[in-house]
Write a protein that binds this DNA or RNA. Structure first.
Lengths: 196, 196
DNA sequence: AGAAATATTTTGACCAGTCAGTATAATTTT
DNA sequence: AAAATTATACTGACTGGTCAAAATATTTCT
């Protein structure tokens, strides 16, 4: 059945994720993916065109998972400031999760230039992020708590602030700064949105 | 003489930079570095411990060059808003330069995790960036044009906004957005600093 | 139902290519 | 001529991808 093949692919993607987390993206071999999935070397090539194809699917899985979690968190609450807080709570989920997910995301970003498929996946992710941003900004404007001139620009800059903060936190390799960055990021966005 | 060796190293670093710009960081081989420098393969190994050593020196050269340009631009003017504008003018220097420099910088960032030497070089770069941010914020406070509670936090977030913006611009692979991102970034920082 | 035939999936050896690093030879400089 | 520098050939390790054969699952036939 078709579901079986899909399951196997998922298993291999998960294996690739774990291998990348342990050994770092660039050092993961097809053999590693097979080992982590506890299958033989031929299997990844049976279910995917090639190694790059495995990683493309991993990238897609990663960004979709991030987005879905963010949206789900946001949908739990009603007001714009609450939504912003819930969104950021999910973005800055925990030092451990951010470490693994964002490091891998960064590895992918560095390769977007070389691979149109990666670019497309990331464009999709950005679009999702921007839609979250727009929703918060527009709702906040309706509620009279946020004051911006350009909704699109604000939505885009929200994500820029988030990514810049997470990137910096990741590079500084100090888990204890996690909370500080979440707060600073939150404060910066509130100022961006002209919250009083 | 020692100057000769230093010159050769510089030549090789420059060659590595050009090779990375053309072929992408991960595809650059020692042979490439030698070819771009128009020397034989033995030379890079004579002047550097190994390939990683060449790239570490390239990373250092790259970040220092970026910082020095930013500082020089800033020192041309006197008031805080002018300094911010000059700083951003240098950060968003041109689509072409940003493309090559920032793509390579991103390649390095993705590898900071794996290499303590890279981490140290980037920590130094961040410190330089923060010092620029602090200077702008403090001067602006004195001038009464900027209003912030926490200078350090503001300085850090300025860089986060810059990096987030440049990263996003780079990923979207649309040269024409360059100016838009510069303006958006500028606006976001002004709001962050409470400029009226 | 059970056997035979067929299709799918898995295995792991193997190949061809790449590349960092080494060793040594040739050349240039001092 | 000795030392420093550069050129070239080589090696050993690694890896992505292939493939034929084996194992397993599924379908068809009696």
């Amino acid at each position: 059945m078709a579901g079986k093949a899909e399951e196997r692919k998922q298993q291999l993607i998960k294996a690739a994720f774990e291998a990348a987390t342990d050994k770092g993206y660039e050092h993961v071999t097809l053999q590693d993916i097979a080992d982590y999935a506890e299958v033989s070397k031929g299997v990844p090539n049976y279910y995917f065109k090639n190694k790059g194809d495995v990683f493309a699917h991993l990238f897609e899985w990663l960004t979709q998972r991030i987005f879905e979690n963010e949206r789900a968190a946001m949908d739990q609450v009603d007001t714009a400031p609450e939504k912003l807080e819930a969104y950021l709570g999910q973005v800055f989920i925990s030092p451990e999760e951010n470490r693994t997910f964002y490091q891998l995301y960064l590895d992918f970003l560095a390769r977007v230039k070389q691979d149109p498929a990666y670019q497309e996946i990331n464009a999709q992710f950005y679009e999702h992020c921007f839609s979250i941003g727009r929703e918060i900004v527009e709702l906040g404007a309706q509620e009279g708590v946020f004051h911006v001139e350009d909704v699109e620009q604000s939505a885009v800059m929200i994500r820029a602030i988030i990514d810049g903060s997470l990137l910096q936190w990741l590079m500084r390799q100090d888990e204890s700064l996690h909370d500080w960055y979440r707060k600073s990021c939150h404060g910066a966005i509130l100022r961006l949105l002209g919250a009083r």
